[in-house]
Each structure stands twice: as C-alpha cells, then as structure tokens.
Simulated assay, not measured.
Amino acid sequence: MGYIVLGFGLVLVIEGLVFALAPSRLDDLVAAMAALTKDQRRTIGLIAVALGVGLVWLARGFGI
C-alpha cells in the first residue's frame, strides 16, 4: 500500500510542476492531443503503461 501512495505522490509532484512551471505549454499539449485520433491516443497510452511497468520492474529488481 505504501508503494501505491508513493507512486500517486510522485505523479502529483510531476503533474504539479507542469502546471506551475509551464501552463502555456500545457495548453499546446492539450491542443496537440486533441488533434490525434483515438487509436493514436490509445497507442500512446499503452506505450506509457508499458514503460511505466518496465520502470517499476527495473526499480523493484534493483532494490531501489
């Protein structure tokens, strides 16, 4: 359970930094994402999930 809370906390930190440091770039990113098709967004999401699982697997394997 502690790892889940840690993960959510890290996501909030990173997302908060994006909102705080580059809000206008976030508008550009949302516009670019809206221009993608649903299949392209789904593919990007699946790639992000796979990378996240890989990073967690590596971190757990190295005892980080």
Rank of each mutant, 00 (worst) to 15 (best):
A32R: 15
A22H: 08
M1N: 02
D39H: 04
I47E: 09
L17K: 09
A50I: 08
W57I: 07
G16M: 10
T37K: 13
A34Y: 07
I47N: 07
D28E: 15
A35V: 10
L26F: 05
T43G: 12
M1D: 00
V56M: 14
R25Y: 10
A48W: 05
W57P: 00
R41T: 12
L6I: 08
D27F: 12
L36Q: 11
I4A: 05
G2Y: 01
A32F: 14
G61S: 11
G16F: 07
M33E: 12
Q40H: 06
I44A: 15
L55F: 10
V53I: 15
I64C: 04
R42L: 15
L21S: 11
A31P: 02
A32L: 15
G45C: 04
G9T: 05
D39P: 01
A48Q: 08
G16N: 04
F62N: 06
D39M: 11
V18R: 08
M1S: 05
V53R: 06
V53N: 04
V56K: 07
I64T: 01
L36N: 03
T37S: 15
R25K: 14
A22Y: 06
G52E: 00
A34F: 10
L58G: 00
L55K: 01
V53M: 13
A32T: 13
L21C: 11
R41A: 14
P23A: 15
V18I: 14
L46Y: 02
F62V: 13
L46Q: 02
G16P: 01
A48L: 13
S24Q: 09
D28A: 15
G63Y: 02
F8I: 13
R42Q: 12
A50D: 04
L51D: 02
D28V: 11
V18A: 11
R60C: 08
I64F: 07
T37G: 15
G7Y: 02
F62D: 06
L6Q: 09
R25G: 12
A59D: 02
P23L: 15
A59K: 04
I14P: 00
A31K: 14
P23I: 14
P23G: 13
E15S: 08
W57V: 11
L10A: 09
G54W: 04
F19N: 04
I4V: 05
M33N: 12
G45S: 10
G9F: 11
R41C: 14
I14S: 06
R60T: 07
D39R: 11
